[in-house]
Design a protein around this nucleic acid. Sequence first.
DNA 1: TCTGGGGTCCTAGGACCC
DNA 2: TCTGGGGTCCTAGGACCC
Length: 423
Amino acid sequence: MKAIVDCNSFYAACERLFKPSLHGKPVVVLSNNDGCIVSRTDEAKALGIRMAGPYYQNKKEIEDNKVAVFSSNYHLYGDLSRRVMDTLRILAPDVEVYSVDESFLDLTGIDPSTLYEYSLFVKHTTELWTGIPVSVGVAPTKVLSKVANRLAKKDKIGTKGVMILQTPEQQMEALQLTPVEDIWGVGMAGSQKLRMFNINTAWDLRNMSEEWASKNLGGVVGVRLVKELKGIPCIGMKEQLTRKKMIATTRMFGKPVFELRELKEAVATYTARAAEKLRRQQGAARSISVFVVSNNRQYNHHYEPTSRSSFLTLPTPTYLTNVLTTHATALAEALYREGSKYIKAGVILSDIIPCDTIQYNLFEEPEPAAMQKLMHIVDNVNFGMRSDMLKFASVGTKKDWKMRQEMRSNRFTTRWDELCVVK
DNA sequence: TCTGGGGTCCTAGGACCC
DNA sequence: TCTGGGGTCCTAGGACCC
């Protein structure tokens, strides 16, 4: 059996943890640039505030109902996420961290007759140790455990935040209560297609044949999904990916950028950030790609952003910020068109290999040890003190384009000068 | 005026090989 | 008049996830 442990309204729960007066009150957290609503407490959901809805469209609803609003505070969420996952690793034999607020647990070896008590124990211990409420779904497959978790969260069948789908009867009931668009792995496109075939619930889909799924639901992906719904495990526990295959740093600008200088500064800043992530996983990248998004709004005020990108394969893989920045800014310069209004840019590093296996070019000197050492020092200082204490000049100092984060709470658990103050 | 960021996996199709 | 079959590798793009 597998379990999925999912934090309830994670970001909003983190904010509440340090502001107990918000308990029982509606709270929402916004995406970067204060653009969309990405986390809502039950009270906020009850007001009809939609997930991923633009903030400005919900502003009236939010103000009328005195909803507490926060910009996203990734230092805080990242640290609390680590605490939750550390707790789960103590409680369960095998843990796969799936996202910032979810983990799969492999429950092989746990006595099936004690699954409910065990899950309840996991839930209560996690909540006691971290202060973050969680829901637990347990079933023979990952897809079914997600179905269970969703119902546990909704508390539809009186579950107390834990739901076990063990018997065929339990599975049938749960699947009948799950609309197709709420199945893990079925998105917008898939659910519309399924509805056209008059497949409306997870139970309907479960009863389709594998041949049908292969033909109509994206080949192997569809087959796997139907099998998982039937209780046949096809998606195993994943090895924890310590080395990402791709590292991206992309952001909307706080306000539009028109000048090349500013665009290059932004791209240099994102490159430095991406390179930092690259070094953290002891990687080196061979490919770098840069994209810029402009919105010239030419056609009757229609919102039509256009994206242009450019790609480069480096002669030798590298993790040096200065080398990557040189290439990235050159790519940005080539993409730039005078008079365009830029709203977003991004840098993507790919073709990542472990840095101790870099194959140097025969005609080229390997990186001097001094550069390696410099990178190491820069990373250490920035990690230990403030995130941008040491930086390359190319990133600029003014940063007019920097994103908006007007309602960010303190980084209570990762900054000495932002600790919670008890009067 | 205003709609996030960072990933993974899969498929189709083209180039190329013997 | 007539022109195979089976593979691999790469890339772009789509779909999906949280």
